[in-house]
């Protein structure tokens, strides 16, 4: 009697086991549907409208077909390059400090602030940079966009540097110190190079994140259909401007970026613009997912060795 009931109970438990375990697999599939749906749609739809003009021409007048998004491509490159320049060196040093002093008040403060900053909504970062940079310079600019994206990138760079520096064996550092190298020399020529691959991966992930961000650019770079670096530079050289003045001219222009242009185009009633929005989405996806995949595969490969 008891044995039969036990058998029943056992069958029931086995059934629950199988059903629930397969449910988790199904849920994983379910969650990946949007990824394939988005990617597939963007490739099909965006691929159709991607041509050479897209990369080499400025936007056509509203409602007319043709034209490209050269202004946004140049803008994105400039803003992201500037953001990397601002955030990577500082972020690496801050991350190094946090790794070397994990238990001092300042070290803990830095780690806490990193967590806080990575949770701050990007739109709030946009508001902040508007108040701090745009209001003071009296103009929306490449510079302000660079600062905004640098703030977005900082937590990624700091955290990955911190983790990678912690993985460097202490014996390496001690060996350098025992040979008489000062602390700074040890950091720059021994510890940081040993952690370099991880740090670079962190920076690439930061760049990938920054390149896809729109919200922080809304009120820092605003947008500019006629932004073209080479034309600006020629104009400036024509009136005999020094390189410093040319750089200043370019950095203080309002500017578009790919995600920002995508957003604007998606809101417009002109089908040509919406089509181009899909093409921008394809370029962005390739860029962002490509960088991400590259960084992660590389890191996994190095770790296994």
């Amino acid at each position: 009697m008891g044995g039969v009931r036990f058998e029943h109970r056992y069958t029931y438990r086995k059934a629950v086991n199988i059903i629930m375990l397969s449910t988790t697999g199904l849920l994983t599939l379910l969650a990946l549907i949007p990824l394939f749906w988005v990617t597939g749609y963007v490739i099909v739809k965006g691929g159709r409208y991607l041509d050479l003009d897209f990369f080499t021409r400025l936007p056509a007048p509203l409602g007319q077909p043709g034209g490209g998004v050269l202004h946004a491509i140049e803008g994105s490159i400039l803003i992201v390059a500037l953001a990397t320049l601002f955030s990577a060196p500082a972020g690496v040093l801050i991350g190094y400090y946090a790794a070397r002093h994990p238990n001092t008040p300042l070290g803990m403060g830095v780690r806490f602030a990193t967590d806080v900053l990575s949770g701050v909504p990007s739109i709030v970062v946009g508001l902040f940079v508007y108040g701090v940079v745009v209001v003071r310079l009296h103009t929306f600019s490449v510079l302000a966009g660079g600062v905004a994206l640098a703030i977005i990138m900082l937590p990624t760079v700091i955290r990955s540097t911190e983790e990678m520096v912690k993985l460097v064996p202490p014996s390496l550092r001690e060996a350098a110190l025992a040979l008489g190298a000062p602390e700074w020399r040890t950091a720059i020529s021994v510890v940081l190079p040993a952690a370099l691959e991880g740090i670079v991966t962190g920076v690439i992930l930061g760049v990938a994140r920054a390149a896809g961000e729109t919200a922080p650019l809304l009120f820092t770079t605003l947008g500019n259909d006629n932004f073209e670096v080479i034309r600006l530079a020629k104009l400036a050289i024509g009136v005999g401007a020094s390189p410093w003045e040319i750089a200043r001219l370019i950095l203080t222009q309002p500017v578009d970026a790919l995600p920002l242009t995508l957003w604007k185009y998606s809101q417009q009633p002109y089908p040509e613009r919406v089509n181009q929005a899909w093409a921008i989405a394809l370029v962005l996806m390739m860029l962002v997912l490509g960088l991400n995949l590259m960084a992660r595969v590389w890191l996994a490969y190095r770790r296994r060795r």
Binding site: L35, V38, Y41, A208, G212, T214, L262, A281, V288, L293
Partner: peptide
């Protein structure tokens, strides 16, 4: 490993792209 990558890709798709797909498809 491939599944981990896919889940991370899901997080890496830029928010505007989700928005665009949302408006016109989803």
């Amino acid at each position: 490993l491939p599944l981990n990558y896919l889940v991370e890709m899901l997080a890496a798709v830029p928010s505007v792209v989700y928005g665009l797909w949302g408006i016109f498809v989803f």
